[in-house]
Simulated assay, not measured.
Amino acid sequence: MTARSGRFAGRAFLVTGAARGIGEAVARQLASEGADVAAADLDTAGLSALQASLQALGARVIVKNLDTRDASATNSFVADAVQHLGRLDGAIPCAGIARTAAAETMDDKTFSDVLDINLKGVFYTCRAVGEVLLAQGRGAIVTIASITAKGGQPGRANYAASKWGLVGLTKTLAVEWGHRGVRVNAVAPNGVDTPMIRDGIPPAFLDDVMLDRTPLGRLAQPAEIASAIAFLLSDEASYINGAVLEVDGGLTAGFLTHRHGADFARAGANPKNMEKKP
Score class of each variant (00 low, 15 high):
M1E: 14
A3C: 06
R7W: 03
V15Y: 09
E24G: 11
A25W: 04
A39V: 10
A39Q: 10
L42Q: 08
L42F: 09
S53Y: 07
A56S: 09
V61I: 07
V63A: 15
L66G: 13
S72G: 13
S76F: 08
V78C: 06
R99A: 06
T105K: 11
K109S: 10
T125P: 00
R127M: 10
G137N: 08
A145M: 08
T148E: 10
G151N: 08
G151K: 14
G152W: 06
A157Q: 10
N158A: 15
N158G: 04
G168C: 06
L169D: 03
K171Q: 15
T172F: 00
V175A: 07
V175F: 11
A186V: 02
V187P: 02
P189G: 05
N190C: 05
R198M: 04
D208N: 15
M210R: 12
D212Y: 00
R218I: 08
A220V: 04
I225Y: 07
A226L: 12
A237P: 06
A237Q: 06
Y239W: 14
G242A: 12
G250C: 07
L256V: 07
T257C: 05
R259F: 13
F264V: 07
R266V: 13
G268A: 08
N270E: 12
K272S: 07
M274P: 00
